[in-house]
């Protein structure tokens, strides 16, 4: 048995995750959810006290027009999930039922709706903020959390298809957003150390699609646009990215016409926390029974 399936099997056997029959799609127990809720509170404790981000919670679906405008399909077509619905008449419905009864592909007639599953918590944010007009003088700071979808079925519990991402997003001048990112790289390491996990900060790249993607990824790495905090989850040799620190330069600013108070194209950066991955890292490191976790870790999370 490899390490990945063994952690997943242990989580399922302990009832922390609940099998749905689909790889990467799991129910979560109360104990699992409690760890995520407590960790989110700890994120708030480690956030700069005077920052006062605007809190926004989007549902896990986003405006399809905004999704198209974001350029996501240029980079990650293989990961996207679109929402389709039945839009036919009564006859179409009768044919649909017959097709299902015969075990045929009933989804062929489904039509795309105006909703796309959110691929990252911050994607719905940029067009909404751009629509408000220029940013205030100090720029913008936002606190987001959403379930996100990525189509990559896997037995690796750290690679779920539907998972939650907590994010802080900074918008403003290049200095404002790079300072924000530097600050969170420090805070993120302190936060993870506080719950007894080993951390390693490394440059990274997103899984852009195809050969063109290879070039995008190399470019992202060379420019140090993405850093990740790697934590052992299913393996201590091949660690899992649990936090990421991304500098988008003017990509979203240009895409959405987002400007600073004086009319310059805004730069953006975000820090993202993979909440399930962090919970998994905690269970993998400290055991499946939270009551048995080390006292300092319990104190950090439960007070």
């Amino acid at each position: 048995m490899d390490m990945q399936s063994s952690l997943l099997d242990r989580l399922l056997a302990a009832g922390l995750l609940i099998d749905t029959g689909i790889d990467g799609l799991y129910g979560r127990s109360g104990a699992f959810e409690d760890v995520i809720a407590r960790f989110e509170k700890l994120i708030d404790v480690h956030a700069p006290a005077d920052a006062r981000p605007e809190v926004i919670r989007f549902p896990p679906g986003m405006n399809r027009t905004h999704f198209e405008g974001s350029g996501y399909m240029k980079s990650f077509p293989q990961l996207a999930g679109t929402v389709h619905s039945f839009c036919g008449c009564e006859l179409d419905h009768a044919n649909l039922l017959q097709c299902i009864a015969e075990g045929g592909d009933w989804t062929e007639g489904q039509k795309a709706t105006d909703v796309v599953l959110t691929p990252a918590a911050c994607y719905p944010l940029y067009p909404v903020i751009a629509k408000r007009g220029p940013l205030p003088e100090g720029g913008g700071l936002f606190d987001l959390q959403s379930y996100c979808f990525r189509h990559e079925p896997s037995k690796d519990p750290a690679r779920m298809q539907l998972f939650r991402m907590r994010e802080f997003v900074r918008m403003g001048t290049p200095d404002q957003v790079t300072e924000f990112r530097e600050d969170w790289m420090e805070r993120g390491q302190a936060l993870i150390s506080a719950v007894g996990l080993d951390v390693e900060l490394d440059t990274a790249n997103d899984p852009f699609f195809g050969r063109a993607g290879k070039m995008m990824g190399n470019s992202q790495r060379e420019q140090k646009l993405k850093f990740e905090l790697l934590i052992p989850v299913t393996s201590s040799a091949k660690k899992t990215a649990c936090l990421s620190f991304n500098y988008h330069q003017d990509h979203f600013g240009t895409t959405w016409g987002l400007t600073t108070h004086d009319g310059a194209t805004a730069h953006t950066a975000c820090v993202g926390f993979g909440l399930e991955r962090i919970a998994l890292a905690l269970f993998a490191r400290h055991g499946l029974e939270t009551a048995d976790w080390p006292a300092d870790v319990r104190k950090a999370l439960w007070g």
Binding site: R211, A212, K214, M215, N218, S219, E222, Q223
Partner: peptide, 21 residues
Amino acid sequence: LMLALEERFDIEFPETMLNRK
């Protein structure tokens, strides 16, 4: 630009050359 160069010159950039330099 990379894709257009490949088409025009009938070449394929190896992965080691797919970088900013």
